[in-house]
Amino acid sequence: MDKDIEGGATPFLAGLAVGELRYARCGACDAVLEYGASLCPACGAAKVVWVRASGAGRLRARAIYHRSYAAGLVPPYAVAMVELEEGPRLLARLAEGAVLTPGMALRASIEDGSLRFLAA
C-alpha cells in the first residue's frame, strides 16, 4: 500500500489535489470500504487505509440534469454513479459529450485536481 492515512474522506480530496484517485480499505482485515466508512463492516476495526485506485470503473447509472439548481451549473449535464473496479461506488462527473451505455467501461481523468470519468 502506497498510502497510510487514517480518518474521514479528506484523504480522498487530498489525493485528487495531487492527481491521485484513492479509495479506502480496512487496515486490519483488508476489506474494501465504501466511501464514508469509518469502521469496517466485516471486522469492526477503525483503521481506514487509503490506497490508490486503478482509475478503471463501470457506469452503473447516470442522472441528466435538465434544470439548473445553482449558478454555474448549466444544463444539460450528467452526474454518474461509477463502480470502481476495486468495488467502491463513487459519485462523479462525466466528460462532456460521452455516449453513455449501461455498464460501460470508464477511466478516471484528473486535471488540476478536478475528477472526470471518460469512456475507457
Binding site: 474521514g8 465504501e34 466508512a37 452526474v79 459519485l91
Partner: peptide, 14 residues
C-alpha cells in the same frame, strides 16, 4: 449519498 462531505455540490448533484 457519496460519503464524502461536500462532494454532491462539487459534482452538481443538487
Amino acid at each position: 449519498i457519496s460519503g464524502i462531505p461536500g462532494w454532491e455540490e462539487s459534482v452538481g448533484l443538487l
